[in-house]
Design a protein around this nucleic acid. Structure first.
Lengths: 129, 129
DNA sequence: TTATTAATAGTAATCATTATTATTATTGTT
DNA sequence: AACAATAATAATAATGATTACTATTAATAA
């Protein structure tokens, strides 16, 4: 894998946000630095960076989201403000718990939690007062 | 909501399988009975049937899968044979457990388990002998 | 410094899905 | 049964995310 200005910019962009961006968001962001970067380059590099374990990817609502936060965690999507938050969950414990209830061998899982985030919960209360 | 031959065929098709089919699979299946059915009709009706709580839908690998099995359950995808199995999991218990570990309010979740199914596990053992 | 070839920009193609529209068929009402 | 009213359809075009293609550019090893 060679060095390239584009790949560095793409990786730094994802590392520099906690917003779990889509390819399109990364494209818009990288274009501010490299205006003629190609959308195909963004997709190709995001894919390679995931293969290379520099990024993680997950599907939500039919779109791929990227994440530079590599350690064991899950995601929570707020139905009010659409922000994706990180949630800490003991994956090993969860998997072993599941494996006690089934005869298949569960080795991995994709979990996305939904609901109302802390901030939106507060705002909702205020509105009702 | 009116009656139509197409909608009936679409609903019966999904009710008649445990394979958690995609729109395309349903289309191919319904075409055997109604050869000139339109793919748009299949998509529209699957959407309506979900809105009407006759079917449930979930995303996997960027594709929507439909399920006529409406009661509380989750899905397990076998990485070997690509079959999607049903898994029983106490949703309420799971949600309340999660809510003990976070300050957001979790009301729902999407979970897809992956691994090796019972059958593929057996076959794998045989191969290694 | 040059040859090799990975990576790029630009563009076309693909795949799942949704929208449009003129026609057909269902259903409630005479 | 005949008839409006309009929901549902087939056929097709359009969309949005992603992947593939290709000629050119640029990174690296010799």
């Amino acid at each position: 894998m060679r060095q390239s200005r584009q790949r560095n910019a793409i990786l730094h962009t994802v590392k520099g946000t906690k917003s779990h961006p889509t390819a399109d968001w990364v494209y818009d962001s990288v274009r501010k630095e490299i205006p003629n970067v190609s959308l195909g380059t963004v997709y190709r590099n995001l894919g390679q960076l995931v293969d290379n374990n520099d990024l993680k990817a997950f599907n939500y609502n039919g779109m791929v989201h990227y994440d530079a936060h590599l350690s064991n965690h899950q995601h929570f999507y707020c139905l009010e403000c659409s922000v994706i938050f990180d949630i800490n969950l003991d994956e090993k414990d969860f998997i072993s718990r599941i494996n006690n209830t089934t005869t298949h061998i569960v080795t991995d899982f994709q979990l996305i939690l939904t609901g109302l985030c802390k901030t939106c919960k507060k705002n909702n209360k205020r509105m009702k007062e």
